[in-house]
Amino acid sequence: MVDPIDDIERQARQGSVSAVIQVLNERLADAGVRTRAVLDHGVLQLLCEAETPAQLDQQTLTEEVRYILERLSPQGIRRVNINSRIVREQQLLWLEDIQRDPKKQLLWSQEITLPPQNPLKRMLEDWRYNRMVEGAKPAGQSPTEAREQKQFWRGILIGGLSLGVLALLVGWALADWLGVPLPRPLEQLASPASPEVAEPAPTPSPTPDPFVQAVRLAELAAQDGQSAQTSADWLDLASRWQRAADLMAQVPATDSRYTTAQNRTELYRENSNAALQQAERLR
């Protein structure tokens, strides 16, 4: 099975802003820094929040973010504007707020430029990932192939039995017409009961992964949130963020992603509440 963390990093390399945020949050969690981001006119606007200014030291945080993003090398993202502020109530329109009054909203802001992507390195990473996915596939037949094979042999079995019974009945009728007595065992076999052929057991469908479902739902909600305009749009976003939070909360404590899932659950619920507040303002 492919590790979902590897899958998220692959999405980030392909330019998914939502996946980039998840990778940054996981790498910066120990420093107490939480990030949000949005792509604005070709520039990735990145917001870094923490409880204290010491956690948002400009030089340290900038170098850490640069290192993470250079290793990811997200497709289509070259310019990144890092904004920092003390953590506050969730705001979906945070970019408009800091652009309107950056001195009041931010501790500091700094733009960095990522180096050009290496196409050979990108091809090598894609090749390694595809090999990993192929290696994760179970050996043997697929459920569809197994079901088709069972139906094939079932058809042969039923067809053979039907021909045998037909031949026996024809022989019995011919012997009766000619007046030839039948041995008792043959008479008993003249009308055999139709054999019951057991239906093939249905192939169980794989159990959906609530972590992956929540990530995909949150990514779509984040994208649609950039174009939401009416109260109905924000209510729909609030519902989708809440659904993503509910799915993430289903990740069991035995799962290696449990800590990440708990953080995502809280973040998605905050996004849902913020979307509800925005819907109320537009009524």
Rank of each mutant, 00 (worst) to 15 (best):
A37M: 05
L182Y: 04
D30F: 06
I21E: 09
R122F: 08
S18A: 14
R269A: 05
R257H: 02
T35S: 06
Q110V: 13
W127H: 14
S142K: 08
D30H: 08
L24S: 02
Q149E: 14
Q45C: 09
S142G: 07
S18L: 03
T113L: 13
P208M: 11
R78D: 04
R79E: 13
R184D: 09
C48Q: 06
L282G: 05
T144S: 13
I82Y: 09
A275K: 07
P192D: 00
S162H: 12
Q141L: 15
R240A: 03
Q262E: 11
V43E: 13
R283S: 12
I156C: 08
G140C: 11
S256G: 04
T62W: 12
L124R: 10
G160C: 14
W94G: 01
D40P: 03
V197F: 05
W108E: 09
T265A: 03
E270C: 00
Q110I: 14
V212K: 12
H41T: 11
L46Y: 11
E266A: 08
L95N: 06
A198W: 04
R257S: 01
Q110C: 13
Q11H: 09
V170A: 11
V180R: 14
I112F: 07
H41D: 15
T259Q: 10
D176Y: 08
E219C: 02
E196F: 04
A190R: 00
E89C: 01
A190T: 00
L186C: 04
S239T: 15
E199I: 06
N263F: 08
P102C: 07
Q11C: 01
R264A: 02
V17M: 02
D101V: 01
L189G: 00
G135T: 03
V251S: 09
S162K: 15
R184I: 13
L217C: 02
V80G: 04
L93D: 14
P206G: 06
M132Q: 14
E145F: 03
E63T: 04
R78Q: 12
V197N: 01
N263W: 12
I21H: 00
R147N: 08
I112N: 07
E134V: 07
P206E: 04
R71H: 10
Q59H: 09
I21N: 05
A249G: 15
M123F: 12
R264P: 01
L72G: 05
V17L: 02
P53T: 13
L166I: 10
A245T: 09
Q250A: 13
L220A: 10
F152I: 11
M132S: 14
A232L: 14
P138G: 04
D209P: 07
V80F: 07
L182V: 05
T259G: 01
L56S: 04
L217S: 03
P200R: 08
R85V: 01
M132H: 12
L237W: 11
L28S: 03
L120W: 04
L182C: 00
A19D: 02
Q141G: 06
N273P: 00
L28R: 05
A173W: 10
A218K: 03
V80E: 09
R100N: 12
V38M: 14
A31K: 11
V215H: 11
I98G: 00
N130Y: 08
T254W: 03
E26T: 03
R85Y: 01
P200Y: 06
A190E: 00
K137R: 15
D101E: 08
W172H: 02
V165D: 01
Q11N: 07
